[in-house]
């Protein structure tokens, strides 16, 4: 939890923690910022434990915090075991081949590649890569389009009905279309990326385009009249105008959009993976559900917590980036 507590205060200058200038107020403040989230967490865990004791499902007791922690350890163990197995296979292969070579230096040697079964952590990695790619593609489209429709009210009027119609579409509705289109269009003997990856990624992109696009447009349209007057008097060309005046003043709104988008992207991805059985955390949850062992619920809870934490981390990362690109370092960003 200390990590989460730290993340709540990620922007405190480090110097405020350094030796000499810690006074009483600061100590109180730091204790507060650490202890309050801890208390909140403790209360949450208590309620969870109490509730879990009184719910019995067909797969056994509803998992409490301790069972979930245990399942998390199990998942780590499984991951290590799986990797160790693969390592062993390679070692055996090396021994085998060395023997062959010793007997006959000209012998034909085959180096096989062994794949490990996908573990929980592989699924996390797949989901993370997919969400980041989908989000990047969406931002790459949404920000320029947002700038253009923000600057010109006629393009805005032309495009806005489309945006407003596509925006509320659920990812699950997109999924069949995207699957069919990708299968039809993406035909290659030696595919660089798998079809399932593309399907998940495009679905994510389609759903998380809109908040960034709309917020960018609003931010761009809200550039102060005084500054556009300056730009006009200076006769700045379109690109310089966008770079020097529009973007810096729209940055807070753009990032509001980006943060909404990455949140949506993450939610959409899990749902899409569950539905389409594409590799990732969503598939892990669905497989565990279908598996129906007495450990399943605990493992699903682990996945849920990890999904939540990753969502939280993604948001914090966006905040850090915002802080990095924003000109106003003193602005309060939440």
């Amino acid at each position: 939890m200390s990590i989460a507590a730290f993340l709540k205060q990620p922007f405190k200058p480090l110097s405020s923690f350094s030796g000499e200038d810690i006074n009483r107020d600061k100590i109180v403040e730091i204790t507060k910022s650490v202890s309050l989230p801890m208390i909140g967490l403790a209360v949450f865990l208590l309620i969870w434990q109490l509730a879990s004791n009184s719910i019995v499902t067909s797969l056994g007791d509803f998992p409490g915090p301790s069972q979930v922690a245990m399942q998390f350890n199990n998942l780590i163990e499984e991951h290590k075991e799986e990797r160790a197995n693969v390592q062993k296979k390679y070692e055996r292969q090396k021994v085998r081949n060395d023997k062959k070579l010793a007997k006959n230096p000209d012998a034909e040697i085959i180096w096989r590649k062994y794949k490990s079964r996908t573990t929980f952590f592989d699924q996390i990695l797949t989901s993370l890569i997919t969400v980041l790619c989908g989000f990047a593609v969406a931002s790459f489209i949404a920000i320029p389009v947002g700038i253009v429709i923000g600057l010109s009210s006629s393009t805005y009027s032309a495009i806005n009905p489309i945006i407003q119609t596509l925006k509320p579409v659920s990812p699950l509705a997109w999924l069949p279309i995207v699957t069919m289109v990708v299968s039809a269009v993406y035909v290659s003997d030696d595919p660089a990326v798998s079809k399932s990856f593309l399907v998940s990624m495009i679905t994510v992109s389609l759903c998380c385009l809109w908040p960034t696009m709309i917020n960018t447009a609003v931010g761009v349209a809200g550039v102060s009249k005084d500054l556009t007057n300056v730009s006009q008097v200076l006769r700045l060309d379109w690109l310089t105008h966008v770079r020097k005046i529009v973007l810096p003043s729209a940055i807070p709104m753009i990032f509001t959009g980006l943060r909404l988008s990455i949140g949506i992207a993450w939610m959409v991805l899990i749902a899409a993976e569950m539905l389409a059985q594409n590799p990732g955390l969503g598939k892990f949850v669905w497989d565990e559900f279908q598996n129906g062992s007495s450990n399943s619920l605990g493992r699903i809870m682990v996945a849920i917590l990890i999904i939540g934490l990753i969502g939280f981390f993604l948001d914090r990362i966006m905040l850090l980036i915002q802080r990095w690109v924003s000109w106003d370092k003193s602005a309060v960003i939440r």
Binding site: D226, L227, N229, V230, V233, D328
Partner: peptide, 17 residues
């Protein structure tokens, strides 16, 4: 508008960044 008719605006209108 053009720079040969430069304007000093009432509220300075400097780019804050």
């Amino acid at each position: 508008p053009g720079p040969e008719r430069a304007v000093v605006f009432q509220n300075h209108s400097l780019l804050p960044w």
